[in-house]
């Protein structure tokens, strides 16, 4: 798979409870692009991101990661290419220690132990959490958990990085570190966020979601100045 693009074609998704969270989503993110996904609470951002990794499967429509369509059969390939950061780090951290947790992905890829160790150290260092190595994830602070969760994704060395609100709960220093990390990541990136400053700084392109649809897609500066219009339409608060 040489081209790490993400393509959604008319994707619909209805939660088991009957709520239709995605109502026809289509877009193409090409290799190396960094895209911000904006939208109000409940717009469907997290739902959309879960589709990039085959955690949720489209009720109808089609999701492609590079040349690979996301289906049950292709899950292992898709998941080895996509690194997904969950909105709630508590959902993501579950191993007894921080280092075990960061090593979880690489070990599942059956890498040799020295390589696992190298990746764990590199990832923890990248997020500045080396000191937390032997701590238990469950009693870290919210921001520390977030950083460790990011390390867990980085350790998989994904070709496509998909992050759900990576900067929420972070102090300014940690937020800055995450921004620099993403900037240094030269593959495809899709980031759902409420942090408009980060979007403006990192992502040349933005998509805006509302009620399960993408209602705007274009250069971030234009989108952000267009928020006036969105506000007028009742889709954005003052």
């Amino acid at each position: 798979m040489s081209h790490h693009f993400i393509r959604f074609r008319d994707v619909h998704y209805t939660y088991p409870g009957g709520y239709e969270a995605l109502r026809g989503v289509s877009f193409l993110i090409t290799h190396g692009e960094k895209v911000a996904l904006l939208g109000l609470n409940g717009a469907g951002k997290s739902t959309l991101l879960l589709h990039t990794d085959g955690i949720l499967m489209a009720t109808s429509g089609e999701v492609n990661i590079g040349d690979v369509p996301v289906t049950r059969k292709t899950l292992p390939v898709v998941r080895s290419h996509v690194g997904l950061l969950f909105q709630n780090p508590d959902d993501q951290l579950f191993m007894p220690t921080v280092e075990d947790d960061v090593a979880f992905g690489p070990r599942n890829m059956n890498l040799p132990e020295e390589e696992v160790e190298r990746r764990v150290s590199t990832a923890l260092e990248a997020v500045g959490a080396t000191a937390l190595r032997r701590r238990r994830p469950f009693n870290l602070s919210g921001g520390q958990k977030r950083m460790v969760a990011i390390a867990g994704v980085l350790a998989m060395e994904p070709m496509i990085l998909v992050m759900d609100e990576p900067t929420s709960n972070l102090d300014p220093g940690a937020r800055r570190r995450v921004i620099e990390l993403v900037r240094g990541f030269d593959h495809t990136c899709l980031i759902a966020t409420h942090d408009l400053d980060m979007a403006a700084e990192l992502c040349p392109r933005s998509m805006v979601m509302a009620e399960g649809r993408i209602i705007a897609d274009g250069p971030t500066d234009e989108i952000l100045s267009d928020i006036e219009t969105l506000t007028a339409a009742g889709l954005w608060p003052r």
Partner: peptide, 23 residues
Amino acid sequence: ERAENVSRAMHARGFTDRLPLSR
């Protein structure tokens, strides 16, 4: 719901219902 989310997160990092045994 949390259990479901945890299992999602495990699968997102390549978990295939088998514990890795290498180390």
